[in-house]
Computed example of a mutant assay.
Amino acid sequence: MDIGVAIGDVRGPASLTDLLDQARQAHDAGIGTVWAAQAMGWDALVALTAVGARVPGPRLGTSVVPVPQRHPLVLASQALSVQAATGNRLTLGIGAGISTFTRQLFGLTFDRPARRLREYLDVLNALLRGESVDHRGETLTAAGTVGVPDAEPPDVLLAALGPAMLKVAGELTSGTITWMTGARTLAEHIVPTITGVNQKARVVAGLLTCVTDDETAVRQRISEQFAIAGQVPEYRAMLDREGVAAPGDVVVAGDEAEVVKQLDRLRDAGVTDFLAVPYGSPAEQVRTLTVLAG
């Protein structure tokens, strides 16, 4: 199981200096991949370009870029630009976006997300390979090509939780990225569903992670701070599958031995890549990086 670390907004407001420091700390600890989320702060692809230009070595990943706001011609150009600027180190994680946010913040339609992503990926994959597209489909129109010298097509992953989206991920991408999804749900639902379509599928599991002497308090704080994740239908469904009440119940937390045990459980569930989001005090985050690197 490859272990990577999130940098940037998902860990709190971050300056460019913060991004670079977090990436360097992870790389110096021996962690091979840094991931950036897309929220309402840093653009994930810009953040990774800035980091990749100044921190040689680590692989780079988006986790994830919502695509309703980005036409595939735009996203293909952005992704290939990152590849050219960073020496082809990008894994492009994309997703349909959170339904509530997509409707309320952007006023965009969110019906038939699996159907939309299937069509989107047909176009995006062709563009990333340098092919010309002339697509006039049910949910998308795209005509043109994208060319960036020295850029290779990045590995593409699709955020997927439900069976229909996991099928799309298995058929049209290299795998999936999950968030706030526990080990039992990964083992019994996510992994068997996607590997039933693609036996070689990557399963990237993203979870808040904290090595701490007060596990109970950390889980309580996370449940309060990330309470909205327990209300969003997509994540609520995964928490219900897991049989837990709140986001704090699925995070990786505890002392060194307990965190290693929880990481082993994720590996045994079939997770190929663990995306850790270090949480807690500066001292707890240093302890967390040490365990993750080990």
Rank of each mutant, 00 (worst) to 15 (best):
E119A: 01
S77I: 09
I222Q: 07
V67I: 13
G52L: 03
A53M: 12
P278L: 07
G87L: 09
R184T: 10
L92V: 01
L80W: 06
V244A: 04
T195Q: 15
A159K: 00
T102Y: 08
A50G: 15
S99H: 12
L75G: 08
V146D: 10
I228W: 14
L60M: 13
I194T: 07
G243Y: 11
D2W: 12
T49D: 08
A96F: 01
E215P: 08
G87W: 09
A237Q: 13
L266Q: 05
R265P: 03
V232R: 09
A23P: 00
N125C: 09
F110Y: 13
Q199R: 15
G196I: 00
V82T: 07
I177K: 04
P278A: 02
E188F: 03
E284R: 00
L73R: 06
T86Q: 05
R236D: 12
A84K: 07
G8D: 03
F226P: 09
K167R: 15
V259N: 04
Q104G: 09
T193M: 05
R11P: 05
T100R: 15
V168M: 03
T141E: 13
R267G: 12
Q38F: 04
S63C: 14
D150M: 11
V271H: 01
E284P: 06
I222K: 05
A151P: 04
G30E: 01
Q25F: 08
G32Q: 04
T178V: 00
G8Q: 11
R236T: 05
S99I: 10
W42F: 08
I98F: 10
V34Q: 01
A14D: 01
L239S: 00
V168Y: 07
R221K: 14
R115W: 10
T195P: 12
P56S: 07
N88R: 02
A293K: 03
Q22R: 10
D213R: 12
V46D: 02
G243T: 03
A44N: 11
V74H: 10
I98G: 11
D43G: 13
P113G: 08
L289T: 01
R219Q: 15
A36Q: 12
D273I: 01
I31E: 07
G12C: 05
T181D: 05
T86F: 01
R136H: 13
A151W: 02
L157I: 00
V218I: 10
M180R: 07
V251F: 06
A85M: 13
A151T: 04
I177R: 03
V168H: 06
H71T: 11
T100N: 14
D111E: 14
A205H: 02
L172Y: 11
H189W: 12
A26C: 00
G196Y: 06
H71E: 03
L73I: 12
R267W: 08
G57W: 02
A44L: 12
